[in-house]
Simulated assay, not measured.
Amino acid sequence: MTPPNYHNVHNKFKLNGFHLNEDDLCRVAYSFIKEGEDFEKHVGDFLLDWFNEKPYLEILTSGTTGEPKIIKVEKQSMVNSAIATGNFFDLSPGNTALNCLPVKYIAGKMMFVRAFILGLDMDFIAPKSSPLQRNDKKYDFVAMVPLQAENSLLQINQIKKLIVGGVRMSTSLINKLKKSKCDVYETYSMTETVTHIAAKKIGEKAFTVFPNIEISQDDRHCLVITSENLNVNKIVTNDVVEMVSDNQFIWLGRQDNIINSGGIKLIPEQIENKLSTKLKGRFFVAGVADDTLGEKLVLFIEGDQYTLDSNIFDDLDKYEKPKEVKFIANFPETETGKVKRTEIVASIS
């Protein structure tokens, strides 16, 4: 069956309770741009760009591993991605959804595209850290970043299916979410692949890729992604993975974060996972230049200095134990809330 064109707006689509077609959405866009708040202006710009004659959008990447940059993403690829999401999560026309993500970036834009194409009844709100505060409505499908999920634990049962992405969830948050009735999934995504291309239910080890996605590894054991549907031809990532099957992988960490300490290769994300139930607040481990080891493992903790419990490193292997602990008052972040590890490490080197 031929997928819908990107100008198609499903007749079941609703925005904040109102049925809107293409013309209606363009009028809303002009109103947002002229009179809306900052987060609404981004929506207005997106809507006008979506319904113009160009077959692509120019989208800002999140800047996780470098400076944010503009890339071109085909609108039909975004439609195909929306359909894949709908099939994977069994979404139907008329299902309720909440968009609480910034539309400046691909994740927030894609919630709109899913709503247009799949015919979702979507509420759109400001991208705040506690999106369900003073909201008792029930939703079939919601996307959040981990901070939003953490701040919504008391209301999480209002959601039938929740996808969490942007940054990795801590073990502590996963354990809290497991206690809810909500079906929670962690997603694997990037701007270049039109948001997520794989997901796993919390508690599972391996991500399962969506249909029409091909995965492999390069000689660094990093994930390589190909998808004709998404106009993606062998995107080579820096994500170190363990291949489980042709359509499943276990994410281990970032190649550019790997620490070589005295000839021992350490994956920070695996160490952080072991520490996540022992430390409160934000932290990370990284390699810092050392005359003897080449790189020494350092634990960075956000906040005022305090004395760590003596058993905090008990679950770590010999070489995984930090040589030093640094306290940083406030971690600098990207616009999407991701910690700027490289900048922090450079500031103490």
Score class of each variant (00 low, 15 high):
residue 239 D to V: 11
residue 208 T to C: 08
residue 198 A to S: 05
residue 151 N to V: 05
residue 170 S to Q: 07
residue 137 K to A: 09
residue 154 L to H: 12
residue 149 A to Q: 04
residue 209 V to N: 00
residue 167 V to Q: 14
residue 150 E to K: 12
residue 168 R to S: 14
residue 242 E to M: 10
residue 176 K to A: 14
residue 162 L to S: 03
residue 232 V to H: 02
residue 170 S to E: 11
residue 189 S to H: 11
residue 202 I to D: 09
residue 162 L to Q: 06
residue 146 P to N: 13
residue 142 V to Q: 05
residue 204 E to T: 03
residue 150 E to Q: 13
residue 173 L to V: 13
residue 227 S to D: 00
residue 133 Q to K: 09
residue 181 K to W: 00
residue 131 P to H: 10
residue 227 S to W: 01
residue 160 K to W: 10
residue 175 N to Q: 15
residue 212 N to V: 05
residue 180 S to T: 05
residue 135 N to M: 07
residue 149 A to G: 07
residue 186 E to Y: 01
residue 168 R to L: 10
residue 153 L to V: 15
residue 155 Q to H: 13
residue 133 Q to N: 07
residue 241 V to C: 13
residue 141 F to P: 00
residue 223 L to P: 00
residue 150 E to D: 08
residue 180 S to Q: 01
residue 132 L to H: 09
residue 156 I to S: 04
residue 174 I to Q: 12
residue 211 P to C: 10
residue 238 N to R: 12
residue 235 I to K: 14
residue 228 E to M: 03
residue 153 L to A: 08
residue 236 V to G: 02
residue 241 V to I: 15
residue 163 I to L: 12
residue 198 A to G: 08
residue 159 I to T: 10
residue 141 F to S: 05
residue 172 S to D: 14
residue 139 Y to D: 00
residue 164 V to Y: 04
residue 187 T to I: 15
residue 213 I to W: 04
residue 182 C to I: 04
residue 164 V to R: 02
residue 176 K to R: 13
residue 165 G to C: 07
residue 183 D to G: 02
residue 214 E to N: 15
residue 173 L to H: 13
residue 239 D to A: 06
residue 174 I to E: 15
residue 217 Q to W: 00
residue 222 C to F: 10
residue 224 V to Q: 03
residue 218 D to K: 10
residue 234 K to S: 12
residue 158 Q to S: 10
residue 197 I to C: 05
residue 169 M to H: 06
residue 136 D to L: 03
residue 164 V to N: 05
residue 147 L to M: 14
residue 209 V to A: 00
residue 164 V to S: 04
residue 175 N to M: 13
residue 162 L to H: 03
residue 182 C to M: 02
residue 161 K to Q: 15
residue 208 T to P: 06
residue 173 L to G: 14
residue 196 H to L: 06
residue 131 P to Y: 07
residue 179 K to T: 03
residue 173 L to I: 14
residue 199 A to T: 08
residue 200 K to Y: 02
residue 238 N to P: 00
residue 153 L to I: 15
residue 150 E to W: 06
residue 219 D to S: 13
residue 234 K to G: 00
residue 208 T to M: 08
residue 222 C to D: 04
residue 195 T to I: 11
residue 164 V to P: 00
residue 156 I to H: 01
residue 166 G to F: 08
residue 218 D to L: 08
residue 163 I to W: 01
residue 242 E to S: 13
residue 139 Y to H: 03
residue 143 A to D: 08
residue 189 S to D: 15
residue 226 T to M: 06
residue 167 V to Y: 11
residue 237 T to G: 03
residue 193 T to Q: 04
residue 219 D to L: 07
residue 209 V to E: 01
residue 230 L to Q: 02
residue 147 L to R: 11
residue 212 N to Y: 11
residue 157 N to T: 01
residue 143 A to Q: 02
residue 218 D to I: 11
residue 204 E to P: 01
residue 162 L to F: 04
residue 194 V to M: 04
residue 233 N to Y: 07
residue 211 P to F: 08
residue 225 I to G: 03
residue 164 V to H: 02
residue 157 N to I: 00
residue 135 N to H: 01
residue 241 V to K: 11
residue 192 E to L: 13
residue 224 V to D: 00
residue 173 L to N: 12
